[in-house]
């Protein structure tokens, strides 16, 4: 069973084909992955890159079973390029397509790339959260809170987390859009609320990632609830298609249906001008 994923939501486009491992257990056992960096040429390169990934994988496009795409938030135009191609391929071959939010892809990626450190924390009884912070232009940032320490034994061969496989993630709160200037105070407010709801406690660990995170790294350290609980092992700024595929494989394993009428995740409505 193979899935093709396209992530064109940021300034880097990536395309990956993954083979589901262990009877669709929710993670890939083989992935071929390509990255491309010139955003202004996404439209010209998207098909050649898909072709190249498929050739490396050695399977025909008609043999793909699923499609998935990062629906943002991200660059509107770039995101739409990936969507137009994926939607049409899925329509032609009558295959399900999964539209995954950017924050979820980043969370999966951050957890995967730092699996050992996170696993260790979880074994010690910590609850581990990932906070993707995405630069959505116009001096605004977008963030959410994902839990990566959910027990999903049924899908994970007896271990909560098996490095090299996948993390089961759940968005527990967030989707907050705020100006860059307000980010730190909004984050503090957000953590206070999360504490009241019982998500954060003395035994939690936080992991930040995303395109807007680097700029705030030094400030986040001083936030209450973040102090002493930050994990800074690896840097994850841009979402990658192989982790996008991972998110979709998780849904497939849980027998979730594909998405219909998919569209980009726009963080703001478009209000161009007043009627004259």
């Amino acid at each position: 069973m193979h899935i093709l994923g396209i992530d064109s939501s940021t300034t880097e486009m990536s395309i990956a084909v993954s083979r589901a491992g262990q009877n669709n257990a929710g993670f890939a056992d083989k992935t071929v992955h390509i990255e491309y960096k010139a955003q202004e040429r996404f439209m010209t390169q998207i098909i050649p890159l898909i072709d190249s990934v498929l050739k490396k994988t050695g399977i025909e496009i008609k043999s793909l079973d699923y499609y998935c795409v990062n629906r943002g938030p991200g660059d509107f135009t770039a995101t739409r390029i990936g969507l137009s191609v994926i939607k049409t391929l899925a329509m032609i071959f009558k295959k399900p397509v999964y539209a995954i939010e950017c924050g979820e892809v980043l969370t999966q990626q951050a957890a995967f790339l730092n699996a050992e450190k996170i696993s260790l924390k979880i074994k010690k009884g910590f609850r581990v959260f990932v906070v993707p912070v995405i630069d959505v232009k116009r001096k605004e940032v977008f963030f959410s809170l994902y839990d990566v320490s959910i027990n999903e034994k049924a899908h994970c061969t007896g271990k909560i987390i098996k490095a090299g496989n996948c993390f089961f993630t759940a968005k527990i709160s967030g989707d907050i859009l705020c100006s860059s200037a307000d980010f730190i105070s909004k984050l503090q407010e957000f953590f206070n609320a999360a504490y009241k709801k019982g998500f954060l406690n003395e035994k939690h660990a936080l992991f930040f990632c995303g395109s807007a995170f680097e700029a705030y790294k030094h400030l986040i350290k001083d936030i209450k609830w973040a102090k002493n609980s930050l994990l800074f092992p690896g840097q994850v700024f841009y979402p990658q298609a192989e982790y996008l595929n991972q998110c979709a494989l998780y849904r497939i394993a849980k027998k979730q249906k594909g998405d219909e009428n998919i569209k980009p995740y726009y963080v703001r409505d478009f209000a161009p001008f007043k009627k004259t």
């Binding site: 998207i46 137009s84 191609v85 049409t88």
Partner: peptide, 8 residues
């Protein structure tokens, strides 16, 4: 984008 996907 759609036309390219169909062509391919």
């Amino acid at each position: 984008g759609a036309a390219k996907a169909i062509s391919y």
